[in-house]
């Protein structure tokens, strides 16, 4: 870990590390440095442009958004009218609340259920453990998207269509997270747990007061990853909700727009509102998120 030194929190040492990194990887050549920088700037501009353009367009009147030729500064100046209109309708706040409730519930349940199972697979001895773990691994290959038809039919049979439960429950099955957590638990030295056992602690006590505190980083990583996916999930919530008051942001926004016809400035405003929460969260926890996506993603190997 060359960039993430223990002192990574300090700006100066980071700068120093970057400088070292630069000379290690690019050497002293001006051409290499200049070339790399140019490509980086061009690509970053290309990647940021759609967001900049969409944000810019969301602060315009509809007429200015579609006025040709396109201009960076609209003729009638920037305005908040799209956002005000959007929030006056009131659905967006509702969907954001739904998204939050659902994503938090999915994350909490998934992490709890997966961590317990992973601990059982990692440490406990019982009949059928190997077979069940093999089944869990095999299930990683089954894309949940392929189960939409039987799952929907099941929800109809259980009379759960248009409930939070129907949106949440099928999302909490995450065999890949069980696998990642089990790998982590396997790496914790057994001595700590054995010492706690000697003191008379049962497996639950050991799990909650010895293992979990040691697993905070991986639990954070898994939670962040599950949360991002739950927050942005589209297909399943889209299938199982028809009631607009239960929709999540990704489902509700394109849905309501259909009813109004295409209104580009308003579309861009709703796009930005839908995108904002995750972007703010990212700006606050950049390092942590970057690390967790890397850990959980790599766990997939």
């Amino acid at each position: 870990m060359s960039i993430l030194t223990p002192a990574a929190g300090e700006r100066n040492s980071r700068r120093e590390a970057n400088r070292r990194q630069r000379s290690l990887i690019l050497g002293r050549s001006r051409l290499a440095r200049g070339g790399a920088m140019t490509v980086l700037v061009v690509m970053a501009l290309g990647w940021l442009f759609p967001l900049i353009w969409a944000t810019n367009s969301s602060f315009r009147t509809e007429a200015d958004t579609v006025a040709l030729p396109l201009q960076w500064i609209p003729e009638n100046g920037f305005t908040l009218e799209q956002y005000i209109g959007l929030f006056e309708v009131g659905k967006v706040q509702l969907w954001m609340t739904n998204s939050l409730i659902i994503a938090v519930a999915v994350t909490a349940i998934t992490v709890a259920v997966s961590a317990l199972a992973a601990y059982a697979f990692s440490r406990m001895v019982f009949r059928g453990r190997k077979a069940l773990f093999a089944l869990t691994i095999a299930a990683i290959m089954v894309p949940p998207q392929l189960l939409i038809i039987p799952l929907f039919d099941q929800m109809v049979a259980l009379n759960l269509v248009d409930t939070y439960a129907a949106i949440i429950l099928p999302q909490v099955v995450a065999p890949i997270m069980v696998f990642i957590l089990k790998k982590f638990f396997d790496g914790i030295p057994r001595e700590l747990e054995e010492a706690a056992r000697m003191d008379g602690a049962g497996p639950w006590r050991v799990f909650f007061s010895v293992v979990l505190p040691l697993s905070r980083p991986i639990l954070a990583a898994v939670s962040i990853f599950v949360f991002i996916n739950a927050w942005n999930n589209f297909l399943w919530p889209f299938i199982v909700t028809t009631d607009p008051s239960l929709m999540t942001l990704p489902v509700g926004i394109p849905n309501v727009l259909d009813a109004y016809g295409t209104v580009y400035a308003r579309n861009m405003a709703s796009s930005m509102v839908a995108a904002a929460p995750m972007i703010v969260v990212f700006l606050l926890f950049q390092r942590r998120i970057v690390r967790s996506v890397a850990t959980t993603g790599l766990g997939g190997q």
């Binding site: 980071r14 590390a17 970057n18 630069r22 690509m43 970053a44 990647w47 967001l51």
Partner: peptide
């Protein structure tokens, strides 16, 4: 980005932020 050129925070932000967007956006 790994070459340590200045602006790490900005590069990571530019390339990764679209991944956080909901598909509706």
């Amino acid at each position: 980005v790994h070459s340590g050129l200045p602006g790490q925070w900005l590069w990571r932000l530019s390339f990764f932020v679209p991944y956080l967007l909901p598909v509706a956006t």
